[in-house]
Nucleic acid binder design. Structure first.
Length: 722
DNA sequence: ACCTGTACTTAGGATCAGGGCG
DNA sequence: CGCCCTGATCCTAAGTACAGGT
């Protein structure tokens, strides 16, 4: 932790969220690339009470954006043409080396990638996508089939479309057909998400099993038998006994209030104070259960595994348009106590059991729709092919709708993902124009324009999230760009040798702290709907989040270019991870340092030391073998020398691997790479990199990831340019 | 203009499983 | 061969975006 909380002491005009931006603009402009962004962040999930007060509310107007037809089609047409990009490219070729290397603990050294990335990108000029009509005229390359970047447009057409409804019904053929390449097919253009959909419905939560009678509950020291309803809720609490949640006031209060609602009337009149409740036996019981589970014979474990597999086979797949597709979450969420993240006002509330009567099923009219459990009814069975979900219900804590949808490997998710990256690539083509524009807009005499421009600037430069409005008191107090409040920012005319530094310190999504100091200006206040409306006018399909995708992907591409050296494989992988890490830092993807981190680091160090010892022994052996050889030139000794040398080499390689691993792990202790890899990085960049350097894709993507990115793995060539 | 509801992506932590190791 | 760690998977909360109604 950098522990730098200095922001509180020197309040420079915190009230001036007013725009006097332009004034400093020019200098910023020029020095932008020389400054270093200090980016530090600390994990402060759950906490950080200093962020609590609201000195003001958001306000402002909201606007509606009408546009868009169906949505899917949004990007359709434009995406049709394929283009061949000229190799060129060098995103922003410029220096400002990211010292990814030392980023940790060196807050003043590490330049958050964003700053490097954008200082200038001359793309625009250099980036001239030509829309080449011809099919693969570009035979050049391995005359492969599709060339990387024809945008989302699929070329290999096929009939389907209307025909689907019909054939859909005939049960997808044997299915596991040879890996279906949906990306080679046409997409629907009418806003429909599917033509045929059949599934088995959700797996309901297991019914409550009352505790054995020897597991007792005590109130005020006296044993008390609870009604099953009250007992079930009590077990939820008992299961969390050693979690710190149960010590929090809000949690306890919410829990107790909801618990009492489930009590029978005598229970309710007796049990009036949570502090007098003793759940220990219950807690112990569950602990014992989980111990027992761990200790099960492998036979029993196997049984469970088989059963799970059966469930998966039966409920884990659906038929959508002739293909059997994996469902992501086919189980209904079981009841329990709500665990919000951060300082959530509703933590501890009872998340109630979902009954069939709460559930809406969505499927094809002509399909065999799932039957509700005996004696029950679904709330509704509908046939809406304008949406992708199979099952939905309304959750009782926030009143939000929950859905069962398909796995990321499915066509329906994959297409959308692909489209997302194409939109980001479109942004690449006009990002320079947009940047010039918002810089111009800083000078506008209209406050709204200036605010909008400043917000956009931060979203672009710092990859902040949009910051939708939230209902106060309904969830943790977190913000994004458009909802930042004065107390989240401090302005310093001068700090650490830089002029006009803005210091951000706020809790973002999931109550993850964002802390960063950056030279720049202004303050913001507007609604995301207004911002997005503006963005939409600038580029079809553009919204605030596209900037995150764009900046993440472009940063990866650049960093890979910059960091990859012609070394051994582990070193290359390290480079990849560092490039990935640069993105994760940009996007502020954090994780709690693993509890076992120190220990595992030590273990690794022990291994390294041992390896070093072995190595020096081996080296000594080589020497003595050589000496022997000198004394007596003889095949046998010669061989011995060779063998020993080999051993040294092997050990050196192993040592190097371990050291790389240690470096990687250390640099990564508080950084989560998975989120960006899964959601922000155009997978084609990674695939191309692997191809270019001859690295097996398995080193970068695990099985699940390869499934999700099958489309990219299949289509990207080594020269793919984002 | 404003509000509400819906759909879908993004997110970190909890839990699980299986491979390496003493 | 059981134990320990790690990476994979599961879980579901918390975001973004936009439509539609008034």
């Amino acid at each position: 932790m950098s522990g730098d909380h200095s922001h509180n002491d020197s309040q420079i005009d915190s009230g001036s969220r007013v725009n006097d931006s332009h004034k400093h603009k020019d200098k910023y402009k020029d020095k932008e690339h020389k400054h270093k962004d200090h980016k530090e962040r600390e994990n402060s999930k759950y906490g950080n009470s200093d962020h609590k007060e609201f000195s003001e509310k958001k306000h402002g107007e909201k606007e509606r954006t009408k546009h868009k037809d169906g949505s899917t089609d949004r990007h359709r047409e434009k995406d049709k043409r394929k283009e061949i990009k000229p190799k060129k490219e060098k995103e922003n070729g410029f220096s400002s080396p990211p010292r990814i290397k030392s980023e940790l603990n060196n807050d003043d050294v590490y330049h958050s990638p964003k700053s490097l990335k954008r200082e200038r990108d001359h793309d625009e000029t250099e980036f001239k996508p030509k829309k080449i009509k011809l099919e693969n005229d570009k035979v050049d390359k391995k005359a492969k089939k599709r060339k990387q970047d024809e945008d989302i447009k699929p070329k290999k057409t096929q009939k389907n479309k209307k025909g689907e409804v019909a054939d859909g019904k005939k049960k997808a053929k044997k299915e596991p057909e040879e890996k279906w390449k949906w990306w080679e097919e046409e997409r629907a253009t009418d806003g429909s998400k599917w033509s045929f959909l059949e599934h088995k419905g959700p797996v309901m939560a297991a019914p409550y099993e009352p505790l054995p009678s020897n597991v007792r509950f005590f109130y005020d020291g006296k044993q008390m038998k609870l009604s099953p309803e009250a007992e079930e809720v009590a077990t939820f609490f008992a299961k969390m006994l050693d979690h710190e949640y149960t010590t929090k006031d809000t949690f306890r209060k919410n829990f107790f209030k909801d618990w009492r609602k489930e009590m029978a009337s005598e229970e309710k009149s007796k049990i009036t104070d949570l502090k007098k409740c003793n759940f220990n036996e219950m807690g112990e019981y569950f602990k014992a259960q989980s111990e027992a589970r761990k200790a099960m014979t492998k036979d029993d474990k196997l049984k469970i595994k088989v059963e799970n597999e059966r469930l998966l086979q039966e409920y884990g797949f659906c038929i959508m348009d002739n293909h059997k597709e994996r469902i992501a979450n086919f189980r209904i969420e079981p009841p329990g106590l709500f665990r919000g993240r951060g300082d959530h006002p509703k933590m501890g509330m009872l998340k109630r059991r979902i009954r069939p009567e709460d559930i809406i099923i969505n499927c094809s009219k002509g399909s065999k729709h799932p039957k509700s459990p005996p004696g029950t009814k679904w709330k509704e069975v509908r046939h809406d092919n304008k949406v992708t979900w199979l099952v939905s219900w309304t959750e009782n804590i926030q009143g939000a709708i929950k859905y069962i949808m398909l796995n990321p490997s499915s066509r329906i998710k994959g297409e959308k993902d692909w489209q997302k990256y194409e939109t980001a690539r479109n942004l690449k083509k006009c990002v320079e124009r947009l940047r010039n524009q918002y810089r111009e807009d800083w000078k506008s005499k209209e406050m709204r324009i200036r605010q909008r421009a400043v917000a956009l600037y931060f979203i672009d430069k710092l990859a902040l999230r949009a910051g939708n409005e939230k209902e106060e008191g309904e969830s943790a107090d977190t913000v994004g760009c458009c909802s930042l409040r004065v107390e989240h920012i401090n302005l310093y005319p001068e700090k650490d040798g830089q002029d006009f530094v803005v210091e951000f310190d706020f809790l973002g999504k999931d109550s993850i702290r964002y802390y960063n100091k950056v030279p720049v200006e202004k303050r913001v206040r507007l609604l995301t709907s207004i911002l997005n409306k503006h963005l939409q006018e600038l580029m079809d399909g553009l919204t605030a989040k596209v900037f995150r995708t764009y900046n993440a992907s472009i940063t990866l591409q650049q960093q890979l270019k910059e960091l990859t050296t012609d070394e051994n494989l582990p070193a290359k992988i390290l480079s990849y991870n560092r490039a990935n890490r640069a993105v994760a830092i940009l996007c502020n993807h954090q994780r709690a340092q693993p509890k076992t981190f120190e220990k595992s680091m030590q273990n690794l160090q022990t291994k390294i030391d041992a390896k070093k010892d072995q190595l020096s022994d081996a080296k000594r052996d080589v020497k003595s073998a050589k000496a022997d050889l000198k004394v007596r030139r003889d095949e046998k000794f010669k061989k011995a020398v060779e063998t020993k040398k080999k051993a040294v080499e092997r050990l050196e390689e192993q040592l190097m691997k371990l050291e790389v691993q240690a470096t990687d792990r250390e640099e990564n202790k508080q950084i989560a790479l998975g989120t960006s890899k899964l959601n922000y990085l155009d997978p084609r960049i990674s695939v191309a990199w692997c191809k270019k350097w001859g690295i097996p894709i398995e080193k970068i993507y695990n099985k699940t990831q390869r499934e999700k990115f099958a489309w990219a793995i299949d289509m990207a060539e080594d020269d793919y340019e984002f």
